[in-house]
Amino acid sequence: MTTESQNKVDIAVLDKIIADCGGDKSHLIAMLQKVQEVYRYVPEDAMIYIGTKVEDLSPATVFGVATFYAQFSLDPKGKYEIRCCDGTACHVRGSMPVINAIKAKLDLKDGKFTTDDGLFSLETVSCLGACGLAPVVMVNDKVYPQMTSDAIKVVLDTILQEENK
């Protein structure tokens, strides 16, 4: 536990999350989702706190659940979370060139998935359920249909322009 990470979690926020979820261990996944909503990832101290505070849980159990589900990230995600679909329909219609174009554009390589400025993070998901519009990319809650390596560059440029305003 480093001092840096201690500064990142706010006990009052965590207490509220636990209370909102009824304080019951069966709502652990919902608690972690709320923690991730606040911090854009699940900080180690948040896991330790919830594991100690909630009855019948331990930090080890919380860590086990957080690492089991793909949605939870133990490292910070970007302000813009890019979810690129590589489900069957998207794969057949060419999602790999789109994923590669994003990686090239954002200089994400060697397993790195968040940009240095913390603006973007990229993950590949298995299906977003919009297979009729393959290949699909989702940036936060917005779905972009029928992507190509050129089209996604335009999407990213538009976001960058907004940010630089």
């Binding site: 652990l28 086990g64 659940v65 089991f68 589900y69 793909a70 998901v125």
Partner: peptide
Amino acid sequence: IKEGAGAFVCGEESALIASIEGERGM
């Protein structure tokens, strides 16, 4: 309503039950 958290295996009924109970979806 229970929201999943991104695990394909949770479509299996006993894993889904484990997930609703707040555990690893095994």
